[in-house]
Simulated assay, not measured.
Amino acid sequence: MAAVRFVGAPHSHTAACALIDRGFVHGRMKDGCRSIDRPILGQRQQTLLRRRSVSPEARVFATVFMSLQDLRHKADYDPQVVVQRSDAVDACDKSEVAAQALAAIEPVELADILALLLVELRA
């Protein structure tokens, strides 16, 4: 979604789109989600995003993203974790909630959030 948003749908099969897709770093994305998952943004995020808060939909996306990333890390790296079918179904349901929330974010706010999640911020 971010790559298409930044290079445009007609260019979705270009190298630029692929580079943006590969440019997302999950740890950075989690940090970005953590920084927007609050009623009032911290001062740095307020300055960067030029807003005091994000929409409820953005917060839902951020919350679910972090939750699903934690589950993926457990599944990938903890050999003692047993994933039941019901766990997988629950994770799929959560991902649908996140996708719906993401789709409901206003375009300008969405671009700001996607940019925040993509770039490494300088001090």
Rank of each mutant, 00 (worst) to 15 (best):
T14D: 14
P39A: 12
R34I: 15
F6Q: 05
Q100Y: 09
R28Y: 09
V89M: 13
P10E: 15
V119M: 11
D78H: 10
R28N: 12
D31S: 12
H11P: 00
L71S: 11
R5W: 15
A99L: 11
C92K: 13
G8K: 04
K94N: 07
P10N: 09
V119C: 07
D37V: 04
A62Y: 02
S55K: 07
G42F: 09
P10F: 11
T47A: 12
K30W: 10
A111D: 11
P79S: 11
D112F: 12
L48N: 05
S67V: 03
R22V: 09
D90A: 14
H26E: 15
D93C: 03
R38M: 08
Y77N: 08
A99S: 10
P79C: 04
R72F: 12
A16K: 13
E109S: 05
I20G: 02
D93I: 05
L118S: 06
R22F: 08
H13L: 10
R38I: 11
C33V: 01
S55R: 05
A58F: 03
Q45W: 02
A62R: 04
A111Y: 14
S53H: 14
A101P: 00
D70E: 11
G8H: 06
D90T: 12
P39M: 12
D76P: 00
C17M: 10
L102W: 12
